[in-house]
Design a protein around this nucleic acid. Structure first.
Lengths: 241, 241
DNA sequence: TGGGTCCGGATTGTTAACAATATTAGGTTA
DNA sequence: TAACCTAATATTGTTAACAATCCGGACCCA
């Protein structure tokens, strides 16, 4: 009875590949809590493998910033912070702005059509109530994913889609930032596509940057509201205690 | 007689740390040729270590894009291409533009002074003939390094200074792009510092982006000239052969 | 009671042997 | 002669045992 059985979406020829995918999913979705310590022997026996490929997988997780290691001490799942999320938004603003610029220069007309269809799908689902969550969760990422791919810049794609993508997903899972911005974001997406279709790189970059910056500001306000709320709660506790 | 003796600049507590630094240096400086295959047992015996920490080090080298691995096949030193270098310049344009923007917002006045002093040193050395090469080789990187650090964005710093920095150094070593642009580049550096001192983020980003784009265009022209040259040589060979 | 030192347990880093995979050379056949 | 199959070989992936390092608690001392 092998304790490790392959699951869909865990493609990869070597054990380290598969356990990497599996661990990444567990971390992103919070099954292994953020900030928690990871014991190598424990995980190894749990997955029914040896420590060798596990350490390999851990190294890759470290490379995409999902775990942090200290020599002779151990590894912890990365702990998410509000500051870090805001920093990530700045990175995305710069890089995805560039991606939009390049997409406007190079994206084939057929793919632009395909992108328009994607937005139409989003529009239909956005009418449904549950659809908003969907839109925020995966649809938005899908859209950005496509623009990045359309940039045709292998390094840009590699960095955003492999190294940062899962970290962003982790933030979405754990902070769960569904918001009233869904409709506004959707409209911004349409403007971006229009700029790309117009072959206007400057405009495409500008709108994409503003789009991401708006998301950032939105999140920032959310954090501020949260902070003032907890502060008030703290005061209440102080009064009653 | 241990075949492995620590060298300066190879700090790191674990064997994997040290061999990683050492391998990285060897690859960047071309002692291990670009595109060449890496044999694990060979390197392991050469460094007097086992394959375990070597594989660990290889994994990290892969993470910063200096080697490429294929399962059950092996690892090769990354082979540099002109297209890839041009892609890298686009990344830098986006990210270092953002870094300059942030630096203009946050860089302490004392550090701005220090940066001015650095430029003064460059100015003095730029007068010397050998100085131009120095300026192009390390001085330029130093300047950009400082701006990036001054951005205060940990992710930005991490990505540019750890993951991409050594790859850029590798390109400089192997393509050796000293050029007549040294003086122009120096003047652009001064403009960037002025914009930062003026606390003008827009301007700082704009100039930095133009600065990097100019480098990119310069390299592009160099490649074109090179290509037409080899093409002509090919024709000559065809005529004489 | 507070601080410091030392020891034991647990965890990580490292090693060498074992298993599985891909490449290459050689032979065979159409 | 060229294409294909087969087997040998070398390389990588994996495992389990060994060594080095760090963390926590007990003990001692001021």
């Amino acid at each position: 009875m092998p304790p490790y059985t392959e699951q869909p979406g865990e493609q990869g020829v070597t054990i380290a590949d598969r356990v990497f995918s599996r661990l990444r999913k567990a971390i992103v979705e919070g099954q292994i809590p953020a900030g928690s310590k990871i014991s190598e022997p424990e995980l190894a026996t749990e997955y029914g493998i040896s420590r060798g490929p596990l350490r390999d997988a851990m190294g890759r997780l470290e490379a995409c910033h999902l775990v942090e290691r200290r020599a002779n001490v151990g590894a912890r799942v990365v702990s998410l912070s509000q500051e870090d999320l805001l920093e990530l938004y700045l990175l995305r603003e710069a890089l995805e702005g560039m991606a939009a610029r390049l997409a406007a220069e190079r994206m084939p007309a057929t793919e632009i059509d395909s992108l328009r269809q994607l937005l139409k799908q989003h529009e239909q689902r956005a009418d449904v109530k549950d659809g908003i969550a969907y839109f925020q969760k995966e649809g938005d990422l899908d859209f950005h994913y496509r623009i990045i791919k359309a940039s045709g810049n292998a390094r840009l794609i590699q960095f955003l889609c492999n190294e940062l993508y899962h970290l962003m997903r982790m933030y979405r899972y754990q902070f769960g930032m569904a918001s009233s911005r869904a409709r506004i974001a959707f409209r911004e997406h349409r403007h971006i596509v229009e700029a790309i279709a117009d072959r206007d790189p400057e405009m495409a970059e500008l709108i994409m940057r503003r789009h991401i910056r708006s998301s950032r500001v939105n999140v920032e306000m959310l954090f501020d509201a949260q902070a003032s709320l907890t502060r008030r709660q703290g005061q209440d506790l102080g009064a009653t205690g």
